[in-house]
Amino acid sequence: MSMQELIWGVVGLLLTVMVLSYLIGDNLFFRIAGYILVGVTAGFLTVLVTRQILWPYLIQPVAYGSWLERLWVLIPLVLALLLVIGQFKRFEGAGRVPLAFLAGLTAAIAVGGSVFGTLIPQMRAVVDGFAPSSWYATPGRPWMRIMEAVFMLVGVLGTLSYFHFGRRRRQEHTPGDEERPLFLEVLKKVGEIFIGVTLGTVFAGIFLSALLAMIDRIEFIGDFIFRLLGGN
């Protein structure tokens, strides 16, 4: 084991033990490890953002670019300056313009991404399950494919109705107003089961990942100590 491997190994071992010490309760060592992570991550992000984003997209074109490139960089440069100036209480209003630009950009990307990336493909996937050609596309029993398509449709509708909180708009408030239509209530109950099934699977996935991480850390500690004691 080289000196460099030894030093970084000891750092990794100490930090692992410090974090895992939380199992016996919140303590000084766990907090120190947490704050070290915050400081290093913030520093790393600062370096990355400056070197990978601000330098090539903003500073480099201004310093070394042609006149045309400088002209195009003028707008983000002004927006960036307004964003920085807007952080001072006296010039709060200046920050609204770059934030409005970002809000418009992200809203449009969100709308486009949601419609073309999620809504249409997911709805198509539900409907495609009812196409007779899909029942025979892969070897197996067609009636199971039909059953699966029905379950998918009911599951999607149930999940959506679970998150439906709408009420009928009425001029006068009557006691029955709080109740939702019966079919929505039934669908909601079905949706509850499907959401439970989905969250259970997600939970199992996260649990398995976390378990693998724990095995990895235990293996790292054992392996490092073994190598430290002279094993190969």
Binding site: G104, A107, S114, V115, T118, T159, Y162, V197
Partner: peptide, 27 residues
């Protein structure tokens, strides 16, 4: 094994609908 996909699809469609509504309101 494929049963959870129904719930995931429902949640994704719900999130996408929410994204569209929020986006359109901003626009």
């Amino acid at each position: 094994r494929r049963l959870p996909i129904a719930g995931i699809r429902g949640i994704l469609i719900g999130m996408a609908l929410g994204g569209v509504i929020v986006g359109v309101r901003v626009l």
